[in-house]
Design a protein around this nucleic acid. Structure first.
Length: 462
RNA sequence: GGCGUCGUGGCCAAGUGGUAAGGCAAGGGUCUGCAAAACCCUCAUUCACGGGUUCAAAUCCCGUCGACGCCUCCA
């Protein structure tokens, strides 16, 4: 039985879907105006794992991830670059999709955008006004009336009275209550805008997600996810809008990932301590990023530094070792030692993942199995004997989204490596250790690691 | 100041009442011409601190200290 920690109730609860066998999941995506960073990667990977595991458990998952392509920051950036804001965001949407692909994150079932959801957003706001949950100000802004929602604050555990200290009404805003938030913002001169019953303008940040949820998944969903920095105000406001509009409970489970920590601080655009996904992937593999996430707890802060990354890299290498083929000279094992360990590893894997996606425990189960496979191979197991365990191993690693693929080089480089290796093999036959070690050093510089064994020499790019 | 999450070995970290998973690093060993990889062994009587509940607590309760996140945009 799968259990999930629900931010809404602050408890770990049994997972039950609205509709048997089907999961409707909405995850807040990114605002597209510059390169995505490894913090975004963490979030994308966390929910990719959630999705993959739900599918492994037999659910049909409808996974929606939005793109915020209408926003102040996009407009500012577009002005700086002298580019059309929607062109700018289209560019970064393509860019982010490519980043996700290189991180082995499965594409969402759909990726709605604000700019193409405009009629529904307007309809949504009109509905809220009709029900008395929103009001239009004379300047063309529309605000959500927080006092009209008795439950306001229940996701973040705040009370309106407590929040007023920090709240301020900006100059030019015409709010009834300091915590009222914008559903629609009147256009400033020269800004991109859409026609509405309240004049030209554009949507506030939160309403888009409520509208897209409704459009893509209906009035009620099973899982709503995002970074824990979105709990307030974004998700709080989404709940308020959606529930006031439909009169029904919006999402049953709220899942929030913790923040990536760089030097003891959250990595974020505003702090400027950013490492982009592209920059990361130019130095390390996507499996290493994913292993870093798997090694931790998705809800807790994740330490991102050379030490934790090096450990993740070693972990990936260790897992890869389980997939090495049997020795060609293997005599075979007389007894089957692997099927029992395969079974127990699978059980441990599932048990861990069932406990609120305990990926660290799931990886530990993979290490167990990897050790059993390697021991069997060392003891002379044949390829046939290793195969079932290795297949299970690959399947479970795949549920976590690990590729366990070796790096690839160009064919010209490979030809050169092969030539050097055959020279080295001859040198070793001649017991010319000096030349043999020279070649090994030379290959090392080229980025090639070699391993000698009774059955010959194997190599890989490192 | 308010709300929330959390403090487990050198590092990352699992474990929410029954006597401390796993990985990295470190040390020793098997194998190897030497390496590398793999495998074996060693590595927290103790879970921030102080009280309390219990036959029994890292796990529950109270307090203290500390870290991080949110309260403005943020995955």
């Amino acid at each position: 039985m799968l259990k999930i920690y629900n931010t809404l109730t602050r408890k770990t609860e049994e997972f039950q879907t609205l509709e048997p066998g089907k999961v409707r999941m909405y995850v807040c995506g990114v605002t597209v105006y510059n390169d995505a960073h490894v913090g975004h990667a963490m979030s994308a990977i966390v929910f990719d794992i959630v999705r993959r595991y739900l599918e492994y458990r037999g659910y049909a998952v409808k996974h929606v991830m939005n793109y915020t392509d209408v926003d102040d920051k996009i407009i500012n950036r577009a002005n700086q670059l002298g580019e059309d804001p929607l062109k700018l965001s289209a560019r970064y949407i393509a860019d982010y999709a490519a980043d996700l692909k290189s991180l082995n994150v499965l594409p969402a079932t759909s990726n709605p955008q604000v700019s193409t959801t405009m009629p529904l957003i307007i309809q949504f706001i009109e509905g809220l006004i009709q029900k008395g949950h929103a009001y239009a100000a004379s300047n063309g802004d529309v605000y959500f009336r927080v006092n009209s929602d008795d439950d306001y604050g229940r996701l973040s555990g705040r009370k309106l009275e407590d929040m007023q200290a920090g709240a301020r009404i900006e100059i030019g805003e015409q709010k009834e209550h300091p915590m009222d938030f914008a559903l629609w913002k009147a256009a400033k001169p020269g800004e991109i805008s859409w026609d509405s019953p309240w004049g030209k303008g554009r949507p506030g940040w939160h309403i888009e997600c409520s509208a897209m949820n409704l459009a893509e998944l209906g009035e009620q969903i099973d899982i709503h996810g995002g970074g824990n920095d979105l709990i307030f105000p974004h998700h709080e406001n989404e709940i308020a809008q959606s529930e006031c509009y439909t009169g029904k409970e919006f999402s049953r489970y709220w899942i929030h990932n913790g923040m990536l920590q760089l030097g003891g601080e959250k990595m974020s655009k505003s702090l400027g301590n950013i490492i982009s996904i592209k920059e990361f992937l130019s130095k390390r593999s996507s499996d290493i990023m994913r292993m870093l996430v798997l090694n931790g707890t998705y809800r807790a802060p994740l330490m991102f530094n050379d030490e934790t990354l090096d450990a993740a890299e070693r972990n990936v290498e260790r897992l890869k070792s389980a997939l090495k083929p049997a020795s060609p000279s293997a005599a075979g094992l007389s007894a089957d030692t692997l099927s029992a360990s395969t079974e127990s590893a699978t059980a441990n894997f599932t048990e861990a993942m069932d406990s609120d996606f305990n990926t660290a425990g799931a990886v530990a189960a993979l290490f167990e199995l990897s050790k059993s496979i390697n021991t069997a191979r060392d003891n002379g197991a044949t390829g046939e004997q290793l195969k079932p365990a290795q297949e299970t191993f690959k399947q479970l690693a795949g549920v976590l989204g690990l590729t366990l693929e070796e790096k690839k080089g160009s064919s010209e480089d490979e030809a050169q490596v092969e030539a050097l290796l055959s020279e080295r093999t001859q040198a070793r036959k001649d017991k010319n250790w000096k030349r043999s070690d020279e070649i090994r050093d030379q290959l090392k510089v080229m980025g090639v690691t070699i391993e000698d064994s009774k059955d010959g020499t194997t190599w890989k790019w490192s």
